[in-house]
Amino acid sequence: MARQGSRGGSESKKMSSELFTLTYGALVTQLCKDYENDEDVNKQLDKMGYNIGVRLVEDFLARSNVGRCHDFRETADVIAKVAFKMYLGITPSITNWSPSGDEFSLILENNPLVDFVELPDNHSSLIYSNLLCGVLRGALEMVQMAVDVRFLLDTLKGDGVTEIRMKFIRRIEDNLPVGEE
């Protein structure tokens, strides 16, 4: 018997990407008012993203029916083709593998977080979509992968594409009870 397709879980409900984009924009604006410098805003966005990732991974595993990934390449595929598609409706491409296979880049064609966004000149070091880094880090941590995630290129900063670099650091060893897995 064929296994149930990747949409085996309950189909996730969709909503207006505009409300999502603008709500995110309102958050970033608020953080820029609340914190003195862009670095702190970046940190706060990463932290909030992490909190989201930790919860999002549960939702993802329940809906997607993907099993355990056996290597980082499989992880990359699942993130780009299943997870990004499911949550943001986009499919980034995967490029620039390091020879040892522990680093790759996600190239985002149209990041819904930045629709109609322009950075004012006085926020040149703001990493507007830094929330995404936190989300990826938090979600992967919950499946025992410590990963470094950062933006290398950003269309908001005038780069041609948006590139998120992901680097596998190590497997997180859980103290599993004897006999489990």
Binding site: S12, S16, S17, L88, P112, D115, V117
Partner: peptide, 30 residues
Amino acid sequence: SAILERSLTRPKTDVSLSAFSLLFSEIVQY
């Protein structure tokens, strides 16, 4: 920055309600 040239027609991409809810929840907590 082609932002001013962009069409205002309804964007096709929809995001998942979970993504929004998790974001909104963080906003409320913040």
